[in-house]
Simulated scan of single mutants.
Amino acid sequence: MITFGEIKSGISYTWRPGVYGIILIEENLVALIETDDGKCFLPGGGMEESESHEECLIREGKEEMGKLLELGE
């Protein structure tokens, strides 16, 4: 399991499953999301209550990249 950030004592955390995708732009290029502080992540994020993995990744693609993703294997 990957943990983003530092777990602090005295704080109650909620488990939230997420989906991240590897998006191939060309044979040897992968799309990444770059934050304002220069960190890079795969496109994706936390799932909404009733979303499937596929629905989450499509929604996140629209939100983060403004693109409609076509999901493969």
Results as ranks from 00 to 15, higher is better:
L32Y: 13
M47H: 06
G72A: 05
E51M: 08
E51V: 03
E73L: 08
K8C: 01
M65P: 02
E73W: 12
V19T: 10
R16N: 01
M1T: 07
P43W: 05
N28Q: 12
I7G: 01
T35E: 12
G46M: 12
L69A: 02
I33M: 12
K8Y: 05
M65T: 14
E27W: 13
G72M: 10
A31T: 15
E60A: 07
L68E: 13
P17Q: 04
M65W: 13
S50K: 15
R16H: 04
I7C: 03
I33R: 11
E73V: 09
G46N: 10
F4P: 00
E26P: 01
K8E: 07
E70P: 00
L68C: 04
G61C: 03
W15L: 10
V30C: 05
S12W: 14
L42K: 09
E64F: 01
E55S: 10
E64R: 09
T3A: 14
S9A: 04
T14V: 13
G61A: 03
L42I: 06
E63Y: 14
S50E: 15
L68I: 12
Y20W: 11
G46K: 11
N28F: 09
G44P: 02
T35M: 09
N28L: 11
Y13S: 01
G5E: 06
K67F: 02
G46C: 09
M47C: 06
C56K: 09
F4Y: 12
E27T: 11
G38F: 03
I11C: 00
I33H: 11
E34L: 07
L29I: 09
M1S: 12
L57P: 00
Y20H: 08
W15K: 11
E54V: 08
G5A: 07
L57W: 03
G61K: 04
H53N: 13
L57G: 00
S52Y: 04
Y13N: 01
L32V: 15
S12K: 15
E27D: 14
G10N: 05
K8I: 05
F4G: 06
E63W: 14
E63C: 11
G38D: 02
E34G: 00
L32R: 14
K62M: 06
T35I: 06
K62F: 05
E26C: 07
M47V: 08
E48A: 10
V30L: 08
G38R: 09
I22R: 08
K39A: 07
A31I: 13
G21M: 08
S9Y: 05
R59I: 00
G38T: 04
I22E: 03
G44W: 06
D36H: 10
L57F: 01
G72R: 11
E60K: 14
P43L: 05
E26A: 13
E70M: 08
E26F: 08
E73R: 11
W15P: 03
K8S: 01
E6L: 10
L57H: 00
C56V: 04
G46S: 07
P17F: 00
R16C: 06
L57T: 00
R16D: 02
Y13R: 06
G61H: 01
G45R: 10
V19L: 07
E49Q: 13
T14G: 01
G45E: 07
E60C: 09
E51S: 02
G45L: 06
M47N: 05
L24P: 02
M1L: 12
S52V: 04
I22Y: 05
G72T: 10
K62A: 02
F41P: 03
G21K: 09
P43G: 01
G44C: 03
